[in-house]
């Protein structure tokens, strides 16, 4: 059994079910006989996705399993995901400079870079360059937040 295919197939079917519930809302009043049901096309896509999920899971049951040398979830990948979540969560409240510096530092640290002074210098310098680039050249305002 190819576990990843079976799980992917089942998840696709689950996703299709969740999306289908979203198409059950009442559409706005149909004014003309020829008006198009806005949920018809998405429902067709959902049905196709569910079918593909079922076929994928069915095929996965018949295929031999494979073992990848690189695990899908490891401490490193989960830590990077956590950093990304946190970064997105505090980006506007804390501000660009502190949050971005911390995110760049954390990702590099998680990925195994241990020369802390060099990392601080590179991250600090890069943030200043990025800020200047966004503010003065691209003229895109970056969030200042409580800590800049």
């Amino acid at each position: 059994m190819k576990k990843e295919d079976v799980i992917s197939g089942v998840l696709l079917m689950g996703l299709s079910a969740v999306l289908y519930t979203q198409t059950l809302v009442d559409p706005s009043e149909i004014m003309f006989e020829d008006d198009i049901d806005p949920m018809k096309y998405p429902r067709m896509l959902i049905a196709l996705l569910a079918l593909l999920g079922a076929v994928l899971a069915g095929k996965g049951l018949r295929l031999a399993g494979t073992v990848s040398a690189v695990p899908i979830f490891s401490r490193r990948t989960l830590s990077v995901m956590a950093v990304l979540f946190l970064y997105a969560a505090v980006f506007t409240t804390v501000g660009f400079f502190v949050s971005s510096f911390a995110a760049a530092f954390a990702v590099a640290f998680i990925m195994g870079w241990r020369r802390i002074p060099a990392l601080i210098a590179v991250c600090g310098f890069s943030m200043v360059v990025i800020w200047l680039l966004f503010t003065y050249i691209l003229r895109i305002p970056l969030p200042v937040g409580t800590l800049f």
């Binding site: 950093v83 971005s100 995110a103 760049a104 990702v107 998680i110 890069s126 990025i130 966004f134």
Partner: peptide
């Protein structure tokens, strides 16, 4: 260039890029 440093900076650029396109968190 050490890959970890590069990936850290790419992360920041990606997030800034998606924020900057509409200024929407």
């Amino acid at each position: 260039t050490p890959e970890p440093i590069l990936m850290g900076l790419i992360t920041v650029l990606c997030v800034l890029g998606s924020y900057g396109s509409r200024g929407n968190i």
